[in-house]
Design a protein around this nucleic acid. Structure first.
Lengths: 299, 299
DNA sequence: GCTAGTGCATTAGAAAAACTAATGCAAAGG
DNA sequence: CCTTTGCATTAGTTTTTCTAATGCACTAGC
């Protein structure tokens, strides 16, 4: 077996037990090994890492800073392996679902619909992971993902949830300021094609403006700024639908443009779905058939 | 070594690689082993678990449901071990921060303040984990956590961020309906002491009402329902502050009561903090000194 | 139908890892 | 000074991991 980034579990277990007891002898007793074995495993691990994990004293050990840093992740990893291994004997699987989606979707679309999910699946334990500035990172234990992107970047299994249009939005109190475009404060969102420049392009006009545009890394920032009356933000159907219906946002200009990106549902293949995943996917499919603009565009 | 709940990592690695490739031969090539070794490891693991993880076909493997259920947790565990092992050699730690907090805090407090965080730390990669119906589960790789709870349930290291009052809120359009208390629709949130019953208790009145109360599992549902004009929800300072300032919510009754729970900041000890963690903690401490009601109550 | 290729399963033996018992050393306590 | 405690090291034993070879079943091509 080639040397890799994963030390043997045997060494890691010896380290974790020793860290708990701060004693090779007591750890060995717990693991039903000899003190010598535990000592050697920890020594091997330290050599592998080229770091000392314990300070050896006459009759006691102290964790080094490196040792203390290492410990929590290892404990969680052991818990994960242990609990999923025990899942073969236990029956309490299937309730937990980890869903990954971007924070804007979570805040502006999902949050206001959770009641319907709850009414339908009161047993569901939902964990939402919302990476903000690194949305490409797929949480390895996320069972389902709602991803915003272009069709060609998606796998064949991805289910398309929407066709988006994009357009500027602002708070009602900003309507007058929006009519003075040159002086209005503009917000854009990075990492999407639905920018001010491309919006003007679809109007057959070049986009030239002397004032700067505030470029944000997530639509949460841009749209919240608009909601707060700080300016005009680019937005698209799914995120803006509820806010427009409520009158919290208005569209100061009539034009809207088809967007390259849309929302997709990425789910495990059918034979790998837990009850929680299936329930969520079923609920999601019903939700997109409601008028919420995860079902069609308004262009 | 005694038989335990943790199978050898060797077996788990063989399983994970095989599940990825759906081929013992290709997995063996990746692991620099022979097909025979991988086949035996997976066989050993299946025997250990008393379950089949793959369906063997003539020239291909298919994951069983058991295999597919096992896989995500193992992947995460490997990631945890791998990343914490690499922390000894790598230098690219420090940008990523995993923050755990409840979704209501994320939606009603944090989201509208992210711009200030971004302006201050544009390099920060923030991942927010927001468990909804299992908030006690601490993500072990979460570097920091903002927890809603009682002081006595907190460790000594927890930093108290707020002192909360709780009170009913509703949308402005619901003001008239709120004056007819017996027929108004009420929302409560489970798992907190800030209930309708305890609110009446602080008014020195027994709470007796014939109509039912909608009990929700997260303040996101209850408060969003109130925002939508569906009724009156219990809320507390930190969640309600922005919404009250904006006029999206009003307080239909004047009385507010001190709440047992408040928000706490749980962070790693100083010597285990990455640059990202320190930056976030510093920003957080400045934010709580602003008038946002993560700084004091209004009772 | 036959042959060649593919890929998993099994076997027997080799190599490596894990483990033990014994011993050495240092520090602490009486 | 002597005894106890506990980690480190050594040499040998045991167990696990791994390999090469072979068998079996299926598929594709002729």
């Amino acid at each position: 077996m080639s040397k890799s980034s994963l030390p043997p579990l045997t060494w890691l277990r010896a380290f974790e037990a020793t860290a708990r007891h701060l004693s090779f002898t007591r750890a060995a007793s717990e693991l039903n090994l000899t003190q010598s074995a535990v000592s050697q495993h920890v020594r091997s691990l330290e050599a592998f890492l080229a770091r000392d994990l314990f300070v050896r004293k006459a009759r006691a050990l102290e964790l080094t800073e490196d040792g203390a840093n290492y410990l929590p992740s290892l404990r969680e990893a052991f818990d994960l392996i242990s609990s999923s291994t025990q899942a073969f004997t236990g029956t309490d699987r299937g309730r937990n679902l980890i869903l990954q989606c971007n924070m804007a979707f979570s805040v502006f679309w999902l949050a206001s619909r959770l009641q319907r999910l709850y009414e339908r699946c009161p047993w569901l334990v939902l964990n939402i992971v919302t990476p903000i500035w690194d949305p490409e990172r797929h949480a390895a234990n996320a069972a389902a993902e709602i991803r915003f992107g272009r069709l060609e970047d998606m796998s064949d299994a991805a289910v398309r949830l929407s066709r988006e249009s994009f357009f500027p939005v602002c708070a009602p109190c900003y309507r007058d300021a929006a009519s003075e475009f040159e002086t209005a404060t503009l917000f854009d969102c990075a990492g999407t094609t639905g920018t001010w420049a491309s919006w003007f392009k679809t109007k057959g006009k070049p986009f030239s403006r002397t004032g700067e545009i505030n470029l944000t890394s997530t639509y949460v920032i841009a749209i919240t700024a608009a909601l707060n009356g700080a300016g005009i933000s680019m937005a698209h159907d799914t995120l803006a639908f509820d806010l427009l219906e409520k009158g919290d946002l208005i569209r100061p200009y009539g034009h809207s443009a088809p967007m390259t990106e849309s929302y997709f549902l990425l789910s495990p293949s059918a034979h790998a779905q837990t009850p929680a995943t299936r329930a969520f996917l079923n609920w999601m499919q019903e939700e997109v058939s409601l008028p919420s603009d995860l079902s069609g565009s308004r262009s």
